[in-house]
């Protein structure tokens, strides 16, 4: 399956392990990723705070760019970018005058033909029973799946089934042999954009998440959002300061978990970039420093 890819800024910066692991697992899942050319920042959580038009124009340019390159589908692994793109697509579809204003601003044609897909939707398609056969119980860990906000809300934008108790990630975890646990913080907010300005609030909210996950006996928290990941992984000091507790549970991107199940080495999955040591690993763990992934590692 060939698909357009909008990596987004985080995946080139502080969350590059998400991009690395996605690119590492892609060939094993028959996924051919073609990065969109000349892409810009989607405006993330800041643009819409200050300027409504800007918050539509930035994603609209990305979508127009995808159209220009004739991508019928665009994979947006970052949950924040995905939410902005999907939400812009909806706003432009519903309001002709806004659409005219925005297309005028970006000076590019926009029709809205490109379908915006998040990582869970795409993984659900490519992690087929055939692939599964190669990885029976290869990631035998108890995990909790953390969806956060942006993959499930607002329902009208992301078309999430079971918004309050989503299962797509849990289902993917089962397919690679993991045991997803029921827990209380699946769709609670991590504090996202307040990471730098109100780190104490982020500390409190992330503390709740880490505490619940630990209490349920999870060995790792699986995420699909760079913002969630950096708050949960890099803000441990602040979390400990606010909660007065120490947590050692690692935060693992869903692509990293699948990569470990496929037997890919830690480095290619960017596990070494985490603040919190990743103490879970695939059953077919191979020697580190095996750089290029190969099908041999799977079987």
């Amino acid at each position: 399956m060939k698909i357009g890819l909008y990596p987004g800024c985080s995946l080139e910066g502080s969350s590059r392990e998400y991009a690395e692991s996605l690119r590492a697992i892609a060939p094993h899942l028959g996924l051919e990723l073609e990065e969109i050319e000349g892409w810009n920042c989607c405006g993330a959580s800041s643009a819409h705070q200050l300027d409504h038009t800007l918050s539509l124009a930035l994603p609209a340019r990305i979508l127009a760019q995808a159209e220009k390159q004739k991508f019928p589908e665009l994979l947006v692994p970052c949950a924040a970018c995905y939410n902005r793109l999907a939400s812009t697509k909806k706003d432009l579809a519903n309001d002709a005058s806004t659409r005219d204003k925005v297309t005028d601003l970006i000076n590019m044609p926009y029709t809205g033909v490109t379908s915006v897909q998040n990582i869970l939707e795409v993984l659900n398609l490519v992690l087929t029973p055939d692939v599964q056969k190669k990885i029976p119980a290869a990631f035998p860990h108890k995990v909790v799946c953390y969806y956060g906000c942006l993959l499930v809300r607002p329902a009208s934008v992301v078309h999430a089934e079971k918004m309050e108790d989503p299962m797509q990630m849990d289902d993917l975890m089962k397919r690679i042999g993991a045991t997803p646990l029921d827990w209380g913080m699946k769709t609670e907010c991590c504090g996202a954009s307040l990471s730098i300005t109100r780190t104490d609030i982020v500390g409190k909210l992330c503390g709740n998440i880490l505490e619940d996950a630990t209490m349920r006996g999870a060995e790792a928290i699986i995420v699909a959002c760079p913002m969630c990941h950096s708050n949960l992984d890099m803000r441990r000091k602040e979390i400990e300061r606010v909660t007065g507790k120490k947590f050692s549970i690692p935060i693992v991107y869903i692509t990293q978990a699948i990569g470990m199940a496929l037997g890919l080495d830690a480095k290619s999955l960017g596990l070494h970039r985490h603040f919190v040591e990743v103490s879970v690993h695939g059953k077919n763990k191979v020697q580190q420093n095996v750089s290029s992934p190969s099908m041999a590692a799977v079987s």
Binding site: G13, C41, G43, Q49
Partner: peptide
Amino acid sequence: KDIVAFHKSFIDTIRNFGRLWE
């Protein structure tokens, strides 16, 4: 003020670099 400053810096960064440079 800090929160607004953050968002302004964020947008400035996009304005200057096209993408976010952390």
